[in-house]
């Protein structure tokens, strides 16, 4: 079990791969609520047109503003995983945390009238393997740490830069 903050994994969606099909929403409600209803999903898909789609879920922030904003102290962050836990008895469903979160990653449960957010499927049978990722047919979702994200971004950009340099070098050589 991860204990350091930098080991906390969260779900990210790659807009270059996401097709906006919303399978993840259905899977989430299935795994966590035992029903099919995207309105009860912890991950939400945004369709912005033919080419731009992306899913959004809790980022497990280091200093979560949702927790700080709760007037009832109903929200807390699990140290080991970064998961935001909601005290169902304390939460009044006021929605302050929903407004505070920059990602819209918290939602008000349509029946329980309290907030809920991504728990990385720790409360489901899958024991912590996020089911949206297991089902995504595009490979658009990843369960990563901030460090992995940074590494991937660095590798991608360096590869691109070097490739461009190689090809331009080849071109000049060919010309000569």
């Amino acid at each position: 079990m991860a204990t350091r903050p930098q080991d906390r994994k969260f779900i990210v969606s790659n807009p270059e791969k996401c097709s906006g099909c919303s399978i993840c929403e259905y899977v989430c409600s299935m795994a966590n609520e035992k029903t099919f209803n995207p309105n009860k999903s912890r991950i939400r898909v945004i369709n912005r047109g033919l080419l731009t789609n992306m899913a959004v879920a809790c980022r497990k922030c280091e200093d979560p503003v949702c927790v700080a904003s709760c007037p009832k102290n109903a929200l807390s962050q699990e140290k080991s995983t970064g998961i935001i836990r909601v005290n169902e008895h304390a939460c009044t469903g006021c929605g302050w945390c929903i407004g505070a979160c920059s990602f819209g990653a918290l939602n008000l449960h349509p029946e329980k009238k309290i907030v809920y957010t991504c728990n990385s499927c720790t409360d489901t049978n899958s024991k912590g393997e996020p089911q949206c990722i297991a089902w995504c047919t595009e490979g658009a979702l990843q369960y990563v740490t901030a460090e992995t994200l940074a590494q991937k971004a660095r590798q991608k950009i360096v590869t691109q830069l070097l490739e461009t340099r190689e090809t331009s070098k080849e071109k000049t050589e060919n010309k000569q």
Binding site: S19, G20, C21, S22, I23, Y26, L50, L51, N53, T137, E138
Partner: peptide, 16 residues
């Protein structure tokens, strides 16, 4: 530009 799918479908057949 992309090949995408419809609502809850893994068979991508729509060429944009």
């Amino acid at each position: 530009k992309r090949v995408v799918g419809c609502a809850t479908c893994g068979l991508n057949c729509n060429s944009i």
